[in-house]
Design a protein around this nucleic acid. Structure first.
Lengths: 334, 334
DNA sequence: TTGTACGCGTTATCAA
DNA sequence: TTGATAACGCGTACAA
């Protein structure tokens, strides 16, 4: 049973409110009693109860962050940005993971509501549409990351990222460029895929649905997808992957079949995970300003909490050319 | 302003306690009013306040997890185990990261206290000794992961892991085996290092301090350490790394100097990150029962919360032999 | 089966 | 500068 403000008051022979004032550096209190109470509190091992405090102040100085996947380092880096910004504003962060499951995501957001956090950030939402649904009774600010359709969102322009990749591969002479998605569910809303298609159109390369196959954002999905692409005749000469993990799966599958990267196939990832720069071959990929996205997401949420107006934000990615891509081989029929 | 139990009571023409009972499936209440109230609550968009509830029940059904580094996938996998077990017991998890900083770690644990969580798990503690210090006023159960010196801990036996690695390398004919630590701070308490030394002694190989250099648990540290080892004459023939990230840095540094792995140097990691199985060469490493460690940590905490006795637990790691290790080259003087 | 009254630990308002 | 008193939203013993 922790010691409370009353215990201290009793021992000090003052009223609980005096103790409260002393502990909160209240202006109207004598320096003498203030330091006395503070020392007494420390010696008694007093630890204030945020739960009681939150009840009466009606705010928690806490934001909830719902994260799609904890094992993906990409989200870890996003968290860093959020956490830095939050710490700078004296906010605490409540982190939970919903394992890419939309039901668990909404359950989590609901739990944040019950906890009365001051606001919520969702990373990698699988239930985007729910946040615009008035029936859901979301009565607190919510910012989504990388869901540009939502009005309070901070995103990286993956459409542009997709275009950059295709432009680059085309400039290397590739025309049969495959795309591996992050899963059947993502496929519909995929900005990367949209960018891929737009760039193809710009280069007058017809869109071939056979070249678009589903992965799952993980290594295993990349392996499956690569094998599927290899069964095509003719197979692609370049593969644009949903993310770096997928790309690693792809490269492994290709190698296992005796192919070389980039000699036989060019492979491009997305995210620029630290590790993939040290992969062999070092991965050509798309870097996102991950830390900045996190910071901006917090800043937007902070404005929302203070009832200030916000607008959706969109940051630009950057192509990082390394060793997993090279010029397309001359066609045999040439 | 969220709707409260009183609002519902007023609208329903009953007392607040009746509403409370209806919402909590209390036994003594008529089925009729119960469903009536429940529907009314839903239609009014009622979201119970856990903060108020926690205040009166004096428990939060929440555990705090302090994690050393969010970008390290190893900790992500530990979290999975904890989260699974916690969910199965209807506990919520509060996650926060202390960035390997002991001060931030203790600040975080202190904050958990203020939040009145029911218990705490620390992953990768940097302030182990504080938890045995009576002055710190830790009045709630705390479980440490991988800190076998603490009485409430769940650990993988890294000493045995270190011995397994050395035994294996010696069996391949290596005798100049380097060890790269996870940082100067870790070095003192490193179980891996202790195991490394014990195994060397068993094989009558004298301990050479020059062969033990500091990394930082990240890729960059591995690169620095490898360069340091290359400056030795003669250099080692095998390198045992604190973790897989370090090993990747080492392999890259060696390659950059024109060496081949495993032909010129054998390299062993630790952790068995998913990605390193797909690295080139596939990494020989030590697998830990990560998910089980997480589950057991929660179970131990759960017993602690219920005032049941606990004992420190120690799980065994497993050597995973892949392609980054091979027989030692014959000495030139042979 | 339901209502009344109180308490959880804290802050805020008003008097003194 | 300090002390009563009320309130935050909810659970519960007791009474009705």
């Amino acid at each position: 049973m922790p010691v409370s403000i009353k215990d201290i008051a009793q021992k000090a022979g003052v009223s609980p409110s005096t103790v409260s004032r002393a502990l909160n550096d209240h202006p109207r209190i004598s320096q003498e009693t203030k330091t006395y109470i503070q020392n007494l509190a420390r010696s008694m091992g007093y630890i204030p109860s945020t739960v009681a405090r939150n009840l009466v102040t009606r705010r928690t100085a806490t934001i909830g962050v719902a994260i799609a996947d904890l094992t993906d380092p990409y989200y870890g880096r996003l968290m860093l940005g959020i956490d830095d910004a939050a710490a700078a504003h004296n906010y605490q962060v409540l982190l939970s993971c919903f394992y890419r499951d939309p039901d668990r995501e909404l359950a989590l957001v609901h739990d944040f509501h019950k906890r009365r956090v001051d606001g919520i950030i969702v990373l990698g939402s699988e239930a985007e549409s729910a946040y615009s649904d008035p029936d859901q009774n979301f009565f607190m600010p919510i910012v989504l990351v990388n869901r540009p359709g939502y009005r309070c969102s901070v995103s990286v322009d993956r459409n542009v990222g997709g275009q950059m990749v295709v432009d680059y591969l085309v400039s290397l002479g590739h025309r049969r460029i495959a795309f591996i998605t992050g899963g059947a569910r993502q496929r519909i809303r995929s900005r990367r895929l949209a960018g891929y298609r737009q760039a193809l159109a710009r280069h007058h390369i017809p869109y071939n649905p056979d070249l678009v196959v589903d992965g799952d954002g993980e290594i295993s999905g990349g392996i499956r997808a690569a094998n599927q692409l290899l069964s095509l005749s003719p197979p692609p000469t370049a593969v644009f992957c949903f993310n770096d993990m997928t790309a690693i799966g792809v490269i492994n599958a290709l190698r296992r079949q005796g192919f070389r990267v980039p000699d036989d196939f060019s492979v491009v990832g997305f995210d620029d995970l630290e590790m993939t720069a040290y992969y062999s071959p070092a991965l050509t990929t798309v870097r996102q300003p991950t830390h900045e996205v996190g910071e901006r997401a917090f800043d937007m949420l902070s404005r929302l909490i203070r009832h200030q107006p916000v607008e959706p934000e969109m940051l630009n990615p950057e192509l990082v050319i390394r060793a997993s891509t090279t010029s397309a081989a001359q066609p045999l029929t040439a």
